[in-house]
Nucleic acid binder design. Structure first.
Lengths: 332, 332
DNA sequence: CTGTTAGCGCATTCAG
DNA sequence: CTGAATGCGCTAACAG
């Protein structure tokens, strides 16, 4: 592969001149520009991004750590980040952490070693302490979808409690009293916050329900299926279910349908995320909107600013979920 | 940020020794290993991946060009590639091309400039010629989801014709004769191949249908909605629809439902891709499976082999789609 | 406007 | 087993 030297020789100029035209420096004569351009084309020259990053101390990339790129939720997140990255002429480097501490650590260190200017981290496996250490080490690192009080200004999070409260309260206002909860079996703060929101809404409305109204499962459709099945098996008196996310809600709805229980007529269902599924489920899923694109964009801009050493205006970085009404809830 | 020199000084050894322990070279004494390890920890040393890539002439990354990461189809593709990349200790670099020639070119050149060892390209905007030029220039470059005869051994593609034929033929065997086709308005080979497959199945079964049975739309749910609406408006006599992909099928199903036309009782629907949606649509969508994970894995392995200069066994790289039966088709 | 030169951080000969 | 020295490809003074 041709280097800058080869181009210089071919064009009969110095490497400095080649560098100038490559970087569109104003101080380069028309003649040089032409000669160099021609030589570059002839040799198929490709400026080596690594050499460039090394000398200019800037890789022009932004790193993203997600749990799993194949999950549409993270797809949206990455896309939003890519949007602002492109805007600033930067490339994206992606790592998958699969919600596992070891994987997250490996992926994150690779991003750090690559000297990404900015890094947006979604991590649920790493401890607060470890994450805090990374945040302190890397100036352009921002944590998304997680709130760590000690480094609040470096976190972009969603108010999960509020989202769950919103959903449950809405159900109550539609006349429901016996509201089950399909929770995630994964032990992360989101799980806990959403259960608390659900419980708080119940309590604030003077509704007391036994613990059996909460059933756990993996946060995917299979988990939703099994949780719903368990709920049904317990012969609980219930008219509505609040699910941890849309996938679980979808699984629950499948079980409901298989058991001849009509949604929403006989059972109302509310999800969480407002992902791609929500629109297409039949009936359309009433759900809590997780403004991930907005959050990701904010995170990316903030991370980039931070990496430049800009001061960040300390406006709140806790986003609020909203309720999206579709057709999976009936009033009674 | 600490460099290898700093570590060497701190540990009281030479940079060569530090390099040896970082790279786990066997020729390093236990004493050195300990001293260096301690120094690295103390200074928070992070080997600079760019410097490493520069000197070792290998970036340890594999590049992926997709149309849009937020599309679950590409999410699956990227995940499969990431899987084999991790297996070989490599990182993934992602570029979005949005099916636009200019964007694809920019993204691809960034990947090339970053000296990715292997590059897997999904491009629908670039011409065969331009793509061929890239393939010839970069040894580890493989084209996915596209078949270019001149560089067949560097392409991993799906037999779109066969998929469409399969779907249409299946519909016919269920007794359908008036089968509409919801095609993509995007002018890429896939569109054409699928229409041809649909037409061929019709013809082979002695069914002649007017051109109005084919309606076009953007390859997403909105496009499916408008295409289905148009089909309905034409008052065509039809009992089944074959859609370009699952998203369009989903849009069509929504329109059908809104118009009180029951699926599959009054109208059968078949999709294409077998994406995440297919399972959750109600009724479950009968569709053509696009084995993208398998193809992506194959592409990644091949690209990596190619980059190493290994010889590739020339087994066919055209994958076959299969039919996945769910509940959106009725026999009449 | 242009060329010379000195590193950027690291891996790797080649002597010792 | 270890260290000194070289260069990967490029940018940025600096001096002409």
């Amino acid at each position: 592969m041709a280097t800058i030297k080869d181009v210089a020789k071919e064009a009969g100029v110095s490497v400095a001149t080649v560098s100038r035209v490559v970087n569109k420096s104003p101080k380069a004569s028309q003649a040089s520009i032409e000669a160099v351009t021609k030589a570059m084309a002839k040799l198929g020259y490709r400026p080596n991004a690594n050499a460039r990053a090394l000398v200019s101390q800037s890789s022009n990339t932004v790193g993203v750590l997600v749990a799993d790129v194949s999950d549409p939720f993270f797809g949206s997140m990455v896309k939003a980040i890519d949007h602002v990255a492109r805007e600033q002429g930067k490339q994206i480097l992606i790592g998958n952490g699969y919600h596992d501490a070891e994987d997250e650590r490996n992926a994150l260190e690779l991003l750090i070693n690559s000297r990404c200017e900015a890094i947006i981290v979604h991590a649920k496996g790493l401890s607060d302490e470890e994450l805090t250490a990374y945040v302190k080490e890397v100036p352009g690192l921002v944590v998304i979808n997680r709130h760590i009080p000690q480094i609040a200004t470096r976190c972009i999070a969603l108010d999960n409690f509020k989202g769950a409260y919103l959903a449950t309260d809405y159900l109550i206002r539609q006349g429901h009293k016996k509201i089950a909860c399909i929770a995630s079996s994964r032990d992360i703060e989101d799980t806990q916050a959403r259960i608390e929101g659900y419980l708080a809404a119940l309590k604030d409305n003077g509704i007391a329900l036994s613990k059996s109204y909460i059933e756990y499962g993996e946060p995917n459709s299979d988990g939703g299926e099994s949780a719903m099945t368990n709920l049904l098996s317990k012969s609980l008196d219930m008219s509505a279910v609040f699910a941890y996310n849309d996938n679980m809600a979808a699984g629950a709805m499948m079980v409901l349908e298989q058991n001849g229980i009509a949604v929403p007529k006989q059972m109302s269902v509310v999800g969480f995320d407002d992902g791609i599924l929500a629109r297409f489920l039949n009936p359309g899923l009433t759900t809590v909107r997780y403004p991930i694109e907005m959050m990701a964009e904010r995170a990316a801009r903030q991370a980039l600013s931070l990496s430049r050493g800009d001061v960040i205006d300390e406006e709140t970085a806790v986003f609020s979920p909203t309720l999206v009404r579709r057709s999976s809830v009936a009033s009674i």
